[in-house]
């Protein structure tokens, strides 16, 4: 239990650090900055209670909001992701995911990819509709969601693949 707590604290701080110092500065094609911090919410231990992950996600989002001047868009997207995470877990791992006591990081890569895809779509759709906040710019919002979502998916897959190989050995 204690080890879990420590892992999560380290994950929280290091993902925030890399998000702000490295991934917010990539500007691939001028505007594409992948979001790695949502790995924290995806990899958070699966428990029956949900209030703690929602509060931590809110905190994580608000911290990023202060750095990017996005008001509360990150926070809203993170809280929604945390709230809907059980739905995606059930879709990917089946109804009995709670019984199996699984660790997300130790599951097979194809299921992980699917989970990542669902989570990124939810997060990015909410985030970019709040950031753009203009109904007449739906196409632009979609363009941002798709392009940055794809970048996030690729980068997160690489990070997961790197850490998975370490967990097994």
């Amino acid at each position: 239990m204690n080890k879990d707590l420590l892992t999560n604290i380290v994950r929280f701080i290091s993902l925030l650090f890399f998000q702000i110092f490295l991934f917010d500065q990539i500007n691939f094609l001028g505007f594409i900055n992948p979001m790695v911090y949502l790995l924290f919410i995806i990899l958070y231990p699966i428990e029956n209670k949900r209030w703690d992950i929602m509060l931590i996600s809110f905190l994580l989002g608000i911290i990023l909001d202060t750095f990017q001047d996005t008001g509360g868009a990150h926070a809203a997207a993170c809280v929604t992701l945390a709230f809907t995470r059980p739905i995606w877990l059930r879709l990917v791992y089946g109804e009995s995911y709670k019984m199996k006591n699984i660790k997300v990081l130790k599951t097979s890569m194809d299921r992980l990819l699917l989970l990542l895809l669902f989570c990124i779509i939810v997060h990015h759709v909410i985030f970019f509709s709040l950031v753009i906040f203009n109904g007449s710019q739906i196409l632009y919002t979609l363009k941002l969601t798709l392009s940055i979502g794809a970048a996030t998916l690729v980068v997160n897959c690489i990070i997961l693949a790197l850490f998975k190989s370490r967990v097994k050995s």
């Binding site: 949900r50 209030w51 008001g71 509360g72 926070a75 929604t80």
Partner: peptide
């Protein structure tokens, strides 16, 4: 859980509207 979600969401959206 739903109430906590709605509560946090209202705060976040308020901040967002302020920022616009």
């Amino acid at each position: 859980n739903l109430l906590l979600y709605l509560f946090l969401m209202v705060i976040a959206v308020t901040f967002t509207i302020q920022s616009h």
